[in-house]
Design a protein around this nucleic acid. Sequence first.
DNA 1: CAAGGCCGTGTAATCGATTACATATCCTCC
DNA 2: GGAGGATATGTAATCGATTACACGGCCTTG
Lengths: 349, 349
Amino acid sequence: MTLQRKPKVIDVARLSGVSTATVSRVLNDPAVVSEATREAVLAAVKQTGYRVNRAARSLRTNTSRTILALVPNLSNPFFSNILSGLERELSAADYSLLITDSGDAKLTADHIQRYVAAGQADGLIILDGGVDLQQLEVVQSAAPTVPIVFACEWVEGFKGASVRADNAGGIRMLVDHLWQLGHRKFGHVSGPDTNVLSHYRQRAFEQHVVDLGGELRPEWILPGDFSIAAGKHAAAQVINMPEKPTAWICASDQIAFGLIAGLTEAGVRVPADVSVTGFDNIEMTEVFNPPLTTIHQHRNKMGNEAARRLLAQLHDYETEVNTPTVMPVYLVERQSTGPVSKKVEMCSP
Amino acid sequence: MTLQRKPKVIDVARLSGVSTATVSRVLNDPAVVSEATREAVLAAVKQTGYRVNRAARSLRTNTSRTILALVPNLSNPFFSNILSGLERELSAADYSLLITDSGDAKLTADHIQRYVAAGQADGLIILDGGVDLQQLEVVQSAAPTVPIVFACEWVEGFKGASVRADNAGGIRMLVDHLWQLGHRKFGHVSGPDTNVLSHYRQRAFEQHVVDLGGELRPEWILPGDFSIAAGKHAAAQVINMPEKPTAWICASDQIAFGLIAGLTEAGVRVPADVSVTGFDNIEMTEVFNPPLTTIHQHRNKMGNEAARRLLAQLHDYETEVNTPTVMPVYLVERQSTGPVSKKVEMCSP
DNA sequence: CAAGGCCGTGTAATCGATTACATATCCTCC
DNA sequence: GGAGGATATGTAATCGATTACACGGCCTTG
């Protein structure tokens, strides 16, 4: 219990009467050491309170046991959910999680290299679909042994692993749900047009409405950016439309909140006059008035899965590196959707 | 452009015709090197694309330039906001941010030591007020040179820095606001009773209502846990109260959402029949129906400030280590509060 | 002009763990 | 009984940067 300097392998070795090599072996590859020695060493480890010095280990093995997550905006709860899943899985495998927030700035190869080339990270998890493909390829060719896995978002054309939600499937579920309620005229408020999720959701929307034989008009597709403000802005436009869809599929829950708030303010009732759906099933959807029909995705599990795929690549037992993992999503029916109403047209001011 | 093995100091040294010592000096303490040499070395650094190997540096200097953040629940957007502020400040100072999620498990000295004793972190930012004081003290005495800063939450009795919001001040603003609207009978839905923020908010509530001469009854203080569910549960109790407060101050926005949802469902109108306030000003407060009167705190800035205080301690220029930094908060008036209504009693079923 | 100081730089030890290679012991089987 | 193999352990080199110490040159000053 005397507080000395930090114990090192040599201290453990002396105490247990073996060499440093043996101590190291007990810690890294116990099977090669005889049981008696192993126990003696472990006892000495416990007694001294020894912990390997990560810097020394990293230097020698050229490995950091650390994964870097690149997040476009840490404040965004979506990302933190994924991070949470990541962290659990990584720490269980004795890996640490380093996080950097690319912030407003576009992520550059240089920024990533600050970590990778310095040997600070053995692998990368990228939550930011806005990275430039060329920059990514620079990183890949400079550090070919450092695996990269995309989680949630991804970059089209990137050669490597990704874990994503079934965005198209989710949209189809929503359209089907509304279709069954009798809706035939659909509108969409989209996400930011630089975002890959926006594209997938919008494309699936258009495709599926057409496939079902519903009515689809270009002016019923409004641009947005996943935010509440975008939803409010869309509401202002909707109100002035001469002819309106009876159902709006929004690219995010937040857009739906804004849209509903704006419509409600203008006297349009949801779902009596018009149905609205979200995407993501954030916590608030349940308590919003009306509770929002939306798509739920397990962001935590996406984090887990991304971590698993990364570790698999690190340990060379991943076979299908380039195949994306598509995680299932679920329809959550609440009260923002209802049977189509005949009097929608009359609600225009 | 030929892709070789990673360049090292020795490569830079050779290219610029100096010794490794000089290269290192240019990088770490440029002032001691003559201008001509410095420029030559920097040119060679650029040409080779050299980056210091962090592991080697860490090993030699016994320093990691990495800060560990201990988060009780990464999924919680509050924490991620603080992390965001932290990350910006740290990365500007060329520090990296390592994150661990204590999860459901209570944080132990052992868990922290996994990082600290291994030399993975030079300092700690703790966002979890639920750590055991004794465990903390174990860490402090085992690693007296590793500074610890609490952000947002904190542990009573801990000797060290903390950065917090003015929780009591925020509650007083809310009570004052309601008082001016004519309210005299106040209720409170509290946070988890293990949480230091809950205590501060509840105590400030009781104190200030008494100071103003309002009515305070023990049965008007309901236990909760910051969640929507807690608010809903509180609503069920409120509805059956023979005599009710005219205003409810909730320990979090989420509680307020749940409470309002529950009350609305039971036919109680907010704010016509009863006023309700939240705490935190999360994004949804604005679009909730009715928009929530609440207290705003700059979580990002708390992160910044915590990082600054930590760096100050690391670089030995912090003077008042034990004084908490209390960040100001702001009242945001929206539509969940209104003048006291005389007919509240009649709304009981 | 010699002594002393300062400045800029180089040499080589050092941080703490891992691991290639060498060695020692014991067993098996012809 | 000895060759050969398997098993367990030790010795010492190594990872890449930092830095104590030493050194040489130049300037100042009595």
